[in-house]
């Protein structure tokens, strides 16, 4: 870890001004990712601007569009356990609580969660070639140990996965990210927030230099009746998803009026395929129809040496999660097995 200077910002203006002043400055929120990266000598911030006390990003409130605004600095734990979220967006609660550990969720913030870096082993090893860490050095994962890597939207430059659980639910909910920068405020639709690696894998998302996330808007529709989050991984808690699925359904009887399905653990961003969601519209919520949707979602998936299993696993997970979404009171309680 290198030496750095540290200041505290009280307002979003102060934070944004701080970023503008020093291109080597980083915002410090919960620090659960940033500090780790600094300790591993993967990130060398010269200056940290602590935004934990910034006003205006600390609450969860109803917004003017009938939805809810999540402050960027509200912790993952406070968000997951907030009564409004529990009632209206239980899919989001469930996804957050499937991530990390209680201790980390107590520190991690909503803004930080969107910006966490990949967990690719080679990215974390300062001495291994990695295009994301050091553009142009090559991708060690391509022919290395790639069990945890992506199967969709990869490029020969990078096959890393974006590891967040929360963001998989936010993608399914079609959240909107609010940011503030030197040029003022703007909003970014969730599907445009994270990006695919293509030829610039060092860029994880579309946030511009000098911009800060101030909040996340959740639209009115929360799928509180029929939802499910399913996370498949190498241990039952405190490990990242190999495949995860967030499903939200609006039903009339057993007919689907509206379906949202997002996948985690399979791509450089939460993965959604609108054709699959369109396909489900008007269909019965049956394993057969979910299977067809799953085939559409996984179209074009390519496995590598150690992760080809993810293709079949993701399909089965989509089907299972669709069925689980029909009965959330049983399948989504804490400790419930995926197979309930």
């Amino acid at each position: 870890m290198n030496n750095f200077t540290y200041t505290k910002a009280q307002s979003t203006e102060e934070a944004v001004a701080g970023l503008a002043k020093n291109s080597q400055a980083e915002l410090l929120a919960g620090g659960t990712n940033l500090i780790d990266l600094m300790k591993y000598n993967l990130q060398h911030a010269e200056h940290l601007i602590d935004i934990n006390h910034v006003q205006g990003c600390q609450t969860i409130e109803e917004n003017s569009a009938g939805g809810i605004r999540l402050g960027a600095l509200v912790t993952n734990a406070d968000t997951a356990y907030h009564p409004l979220i529990g009632q209206r967006y239980p899919l989001l609660s469930k996804a957050i609580l499937a991530g990390a550990s209680a201790q980390i969720r107590n520190m991690a913030t909503n803004g930080g969660n969107l910006l966490q870096r990949t967990r690719c082993y080679y990215f974390y090893d300062a001495h291994a070639p990695c295009n994301k860490r050091e553009p142009g050095t090559g991708c060690s994962a391509l022919e290395g140990y790639n069990r945890i890597m992506a199967i969709l939207g990869t490029s020969p430059q990078c096959i890393a996965v974006f590891p967040s659980d929360m963001c998989v639910a936010l993608a399914a909910l079609e959240a909107v990210v609010r940011v503030k920068g030197p040029a003022g405020e703007r909003v970014i639709n969730f599907e445009d927030f994270h990006r695919l690696p293509a030829d610039t894998p060092h860029l994880d998302n579309s946030l511009q230099a000098g911009e800060m996330i101030t909040g996340i808007d959740l639209p009115e529709e929360g799928f509180e009746q029929n939802y499910s989050y399913l996370k498949l991984r190498d241990r039952n808690s405190y490990s990242f998803a190999l495949v995860s699925v967030a499903t939200g359904l609006k039903l009339s009887g057993d007919r689907i009026d509206l379906a949202r399905i997002a996948l985690g653990g399979v791509a450089h961003k939460p993965w959604r395929v609108k054709e699959a969601e369109e396909f489900l519209k008007g269909k019965t919520a049956s394993p057969e129809n979910f299977t067809k949707a799953a085939d559409l979602i996984l179209e074009g998936a390519v496995g590598f040496t150690h992760n080809a299993f993810k293709i079949e696993l993701a399909k089965r997970a989509i089907v299972r999660n669709g069925i689980m979404a029909l009965n959330p009171s049983e399948t989504q309680r804490p400790g419930a097995q995926p197979s309930l």
Partner: peptide, 25 residues
Amino acid sequence: TITDHRLGRYMNPNLAEYHIPVHAD
């Protein structure tokens, strides 16, 4: 412990990626 034999080194030297059981297991 995951070894990358091309690099001759262990790839998961931390408790996040070296999976020992947690309570839920």
